[in-house]
């Protein structure tokens, strides 16, 4: 049941090629919402997709409002909190591991304890201490422009902030998450909480997207007689880790160096999958 992505990269002639991507995620699970009352589904969504439960819940609700013919509402505060916690988790848990260090469990615990209002001091500390070392690590390995190539559709912080960057190399991908975290901290400080209510009239066909931590999340719904008739979810990881998606293309043809697994690991972390990612490197003779 535990979802996992596996990236299998072949190295031949010193470059990555024939990248295969497999996933045990269940992207069509939302189809089983069919036939259930709307209220039940709106309660199930954050419970079933709890890793980004706030974004999932708000996106589902926005799709329902769209189906009911209501205008889209801004609900930035809970979404910003979730984004800050997810980006903070990457800084505390994942980025140190890329540097060969232990995860910062103390910061991680503090972040999770205050997940509805992530403490600015904690985030600022993480931003001041972790990214500079990771960026220096990339420079030292000569990997600042690793993965650079023609732009392709993708989801996430780099996609949202790419106007600030001249290249889509590895360093800029990590920098985009830093930029976004700083911007989200400012936005969160002034964002308003809005009450969440299910609209009274809900029948219809609707679709809505929200910017979740890892990228654009889209729900498409059809509701008849208060019952769900169709419900589809497209998540950022579906796009970024697609077998013909941006990560596969960024990796293909890149120099493998003397530690190819670490290079794949860095690129995967830059795209930040929502589930565990296993990496296999096959060295061709």
């Amino acid at each position: 049941m535990e979802a996992k992505i596996t990236v299998t990269a072949r190295v031949a002639g010193g470059v990555f090629q024939n990248i295969a991507m497999t996933s045990t995620r269940l992207p069509d699970a939302a189809r089983l919402f069919t036939g259930r009352p709307l209220a039940e589904v709106l309660n199930l969504i954050p419970a079933v997709f709890s890793l980004c439960g706030t974004a999932q819940r708000l996106c589902g609700l926005a799709a329902v409002e769209n189906a009911a013919g209501l205008p889209p509402q801004a609900r930035p505060r809970p979404l910003l909190a979730e984004t800050l916690v997810e980006h903070g988790t990457a800084l505390a848990r994942d980025w140190p591991v890329l540097l060969g260090e232990a995860p910062d469990l103390k910061s991680l615990k503090a972040l999770r304890a205050a997940r509805h209002a992530p403490p600015p001091d904690l985030l600022a500390d993480l931003l001041d201490t972790v990214p500079p070392r990771l960026l220096a690590h990339l420079d030292a390995l000569g990997l600042a422009e690793f993965g650079q190539g023609p732009p392709r559709p993708e989801a996430g912080p780099f996609s949202r902030h790419q106007r600030h960057f001249v290249s889509n190399g590895l360093k800029n991908r990590f920098l985009a998450r830093v930029v976004e975290t700083r911007a989200a901290m400012v936005a969160f400080a002034t964002a308003e909480d809005l009450e969440i209510t299910i609209p009274a009239v809900t029948d219809g066909v609707g679709t809505a997207s929200v910017e979740a931590a890892r990228g654009t999340l889209t729900h498409s719904v059809r509701i008849e007689g208060g019952l769900v008739r169709d419900w589809r979810i497209a998540a950022p990881t579906d796009i970024n880790f697609h077998p013909d998606g941006p990560l596969v293309h960024a990796l293909s043809g890149q120099p493998a160096g003397d530690n190819p697994e670490h290079r794949v690991r860095l690129l995967v972390a830059a795209f930040d999958p929502c589930v565990a990612c296993e990496i296999e490197v096959i060295l061709d003779a």
Binding site: L32, N43, L44, A47, V48, L105, V275
Partner: peptide, 25 residues
């Protein structure tokens, strides 16, 4: 992610509803 650390406690009622749905999936 990875399963080594618990990151949340989920209310029993919510958890049972989610598990029942996942069993159907």
């Amino acid at each position: 992610v990875g399963g080594g650390f618990a990151q949340d406690i989920m209310p029993k009622e919510t958890a049972l509803a989610a598990l029942s749905f996942m069993a159907e999936v």
